[in-house]
Amino acid sequence: MQMATENQFVLFYSIRQCPTDTGCFIPHMERLVASSLPMPKTVIADAGYDSEENYLYAMGEEKELSFNSLIPYERENTSYKKDIRHASNWTYEEQDDRFICPKGQYARFK
């Protein structure tokens, strides 16, 4: 569920079947545009809406209507740097085109 609020009052909402907020921003705003409600001058969203597509949409490059937006860039997730299951933590042998996991097992990616 996506909500548009002002001064802690819900002004508009939409329900979508998206696994993340990133894919909900544009459809939610399009429904707001199609309604009889006035468009906000500034849209504030959390980092879950961080995507190039959403930034371009807010700037008006994909439509005529534009508005100011405050969507922070999501901080880089560094938890994978300690995860031995993540291939970026494995040693790559270019000559044999294979990776070696921290436990010494070889893996080829297809």
Rank of each mutant, 00 (worst) to 15 (best):
I44T: 11
I84C: 09
S69V: 01
R85T: 14
L32Q: 05
Y73F: 04
N68V: 02
E61W: 09
I15E: 09
Y57W: 14
D21R: 10
C24P: 00
M29V: 08
N89G: 09
N68I: 01
N77T: 01
V10L: 09
T78D: 07
D83W: 11
N89P: 02
K63I: 04
S14C: 14
E30H: 07
Y73P: 00
E76F: 07
W90K: 05
Y80I: 05
T20K: 13
S69G: 01
K103W: 11
F25D: 03
W90P: 02
D83S: 10
R16G: 08
Y106K: 15
T20I: 07
N77A: 03
F12S: 03
G60A: 06
I84G: 05
H28K: 03
Q8H: 13
L11F: 12
F67S: 07
C101I: 10
E64Y: 02
P27G: 03
E52N: 03
S14L: 00
S51W: 04
D50S: 07
F99C: 06
D97L: 04
E94G: 01
N54G: 04
H28G: 00
A87G: 02
E53I: 10
M29G: 00
G104P: 06
Q95L: 12
A34W: 11
A45V: 06
F12D: 11
T78G: 01
E30I: 09
I71M: 03
S35A: 10
Q8A: 12
E64N: 10
S66Q: 03
E30F: 00
D46S: 11
E64M: 03
D97T: 04
D83Q: 06
Y80Q: 07
R75D: 13
Y13L: 00
P102M: 02
Y73M: 03
N68Q: 11
I100D: 05
L11C: 10
R85D: 11
G104A: 05
N89K: 09
A45W: 01
T22V: 15
E62C: 05
P72E: 05
I26A: 01
D97H: 11
R75T: 13
S51A: 15
R75W: 10
C24H: 00
N77Y: 10
L65M: 06
I44Y: 08
N89T: 07
S66M: 02
Y92M: 03
R31I: 00
E74F: 02
K63C: 12
P38E: 12
V33A: 11
S14G: 06
S14V: 10
Q17G: 12
F12L: 02
T22L: 07
D97V: 05
P38I: 03
S35V: 06
E94W: 01
R108E: 12
H86R: 11
D21P: 00
G23C: 05
D97N: 14
D97I: 03
A47H: 01
P27C: 01
G23R: 09
N89S: 07
Q8N: 15
P72R: 04
P102L: 07
G48T: 06
P19W: 07
R85F: 08
D21L: 08
G48E: 04
E76L: 05
R31A: 12
E94V: 06
K63M: 07
D83A: 07
D83P: 09
Q95R: 14
S66E: 02
H28T: 14
K103M: 10
E53L: 13
